[in-house]
Design a protein around this nucleic acid. Structure first.
Lengths: 121, 121
DNA sequence: CTTGACTCTATCCGTTTTAGATATATCATG
DNA sequence: CATGATATATCTAAAACGGATAGAGTCAAG
């Protein structure tokens, strides 16, 4: 059987990611962060179109943590309240799979000519 | 104020689209279709990762219809049971805005180097 | 100092979105 | 005419999401 990309089946089964989960993983991709910072960065990453409230944020963080996709680090930053999270290798792989799925879909849309080729400007 | 893309604000406020809504609009982008066909095409478009059950499908169709993003056409096809839907101009514009949002995000991920540039193979 | 704005985590509660099961009827094929 | 795919639809429950609220720690300005 031909596989275009080396993903486990159980990885694929988690796709597509819910919006909140996707953005939390995305926000953690470049650095370890605490919840409030994740919230701010998501707003910026998304150009303001996505902003999680505290309920969605902390609920999602707990869920991802339970699933082993992110983990709390032991490093302490100035502010003692902060709980800092990092992507696990599984989380990073899942995020990569989601990016890949999205790009595949956009490429397909272009081939179908339902998405104007450049779409830029 | 500088706008990168000429979208209404109220259009932006509907983004990101829920997965089911996005895929229904996407499936209707190349041709008018009835519900059952939309369901089949979504499974194919998504490479099997997304398959809506009847509940999600028809609930979503009704919602999009109420919002004026799709509309039932009057054309009849052989099978009398079929109710055929088409994208409205608003629906097409919203779909375009969603595609644009997704591509922007993927481009950003590449610039941040959290998405390996080719990701191919 | 202290006051007020911001930071930070957290939960309550309701709404929206999604999924499985089920129902009912029509169509196509052998 | 029977069997399986087609086709629409709803019931019920779970998952995802968002606003409101809470409480405590930080920090800068006066």
């Amino acid at each position: 059987m031909i596989r275009k990309y080396p993903f486990d089946d159980d990885l694929l089964e988690n796709l597509p990611l819910p919006t909140a989960s996707f953005f939390v993983l995305f926000a953690l991709a470049d650095a370890d962060k605490h919840g409030y910072r994740i919230m701010q960065d998501i707003r910026e990453l998304s150009g303001g179109t996505v902003s999680l409230g505290p309920a969605t944020l902390y609920t999602t963080i707990r869920k991802l943590s339970d699933q082993g996709l992110i983990s709390e680090t032991s490093e302490s930053s100035g502010d003692e309240r902060r709980r800092i999270y990092a992507l696990t290798s599984g989380g990073r792989r899942l995020l990569g799979a989601e990016f890949h799925r999205q790009q595949q879909l956009l490429d397909l849309a272009r081939r179908m000519k339902v998405l104007k080729i450049g779409e830029q400007k």
